[in-house]
Design a protein around this nucleic acid. Structure first.
Lengths: 146, 146
DNA sequence: TACCCAGTTTGTTATAATTACAAACAACTT
DNA sequence: AAGTTGTTTGTAATTATAACAAACTGGGTA
């Protein structure tokens, strides 16, 4: 198992203690295709390491995300939000507050449309493209909503 | 209140019965800035219409989304997913199954980077751009994962 | 205008994902 | 080898959302 060595290196680089649980979670994450959920990881890791606590999975993943070893898909926000604007637009997510703003840009939409018309993705038909623009709102007045 | 008339028209166009609850939810959604959550809507609508059930809020929103009167931000999927790939990439979401695939495209990344370098968004600093490419995987073998 | 019924709303109850917390434990430093 | 700090565990709490069946109502119709 040479990839265990690599995992250990990764953890070390991130200043994390080497624990069997962390190694197992990372190993499983690397092995699984298809972006697993925390629960899927729990089930899978449990096969190798019965008795591991779900909490550990969550903790470990949080730590990994924090250290940049892993990314969360979807947003970091935690609940569904609703938007009465149905026409094409995108969203700016603030990394500090949980502010989310609309971003309209027909020029960009056209650009993307053209791009994907030219560059087909094989085996996939594109219906809609949504940008999540991550960044910071400049500290003018608002740090609210934390 | 002329916007109530517009709401009624919208609902009619979508073949939905005009109920005070639906009007109130839509009205509130239009009024609130900041993409409210279901719960925020519940609180806000409750002010005008005390006793409205949370379930109604959820039902109403689901119906609105179904009829295209409203959009859900984030994904339609329901849980967080994790990805061990930290380098820039995007995701293709299948509208039929809950399959999610990686999409790598350095050319596109460059394009977007250039685009946003040129076109600044005022009051906002862009750190990262994530595309959610919505569509369908062609029915080759897999309809799994539903 | 009164009636009817499909479509809505409601309350309650269930489920599922995630977090809080404190006690037990183990990795690494010296 | 021992101690401190970081990690894991189990349990219990919280939160968002869905299921369900009973009660109700909007709006077409007799």
């Amino acid at each position: 198992m040479k990839d265990i060595q690599q995992i250990i290196q990764k953890l070390n680089k991130a200043n994390l203690k080497i624990t069997p649980q962390r190694v197992a979670v990372m190993q499983t994450l690397l092995k699984l295709r298809q972006h697993p959920t925390a629960d899927e990881l729990f089930v899978e890791v449990s096969k190798k390491m019965p008795g591991i606590s779900p909490t550990t999975i969550y903790n470990t993943l949080d730590t990994f995300v924090e250290k940049g070893l892993v990314k969360r898909i979807k947003t970091d926000a935690d609940v569904m939000r609703y938007d009465d604007i149905v026409e094409t637009h995108h969203h700016m997510y603030c990394s500090i507050s949980d502010r989310i703003e609309d971003y309209f840009d027909p020029e960009l939409d056209q650009l993307l449309k053209d791009y994907f018309k030219k560059k087909q993705i094989d085996g996939f038909t594109v219906n809609d493209i949504r940008l999540q623009i991550m960044g910071d709102f400049l500290q003018t007045q608002t740090t609210k909503n934390n």
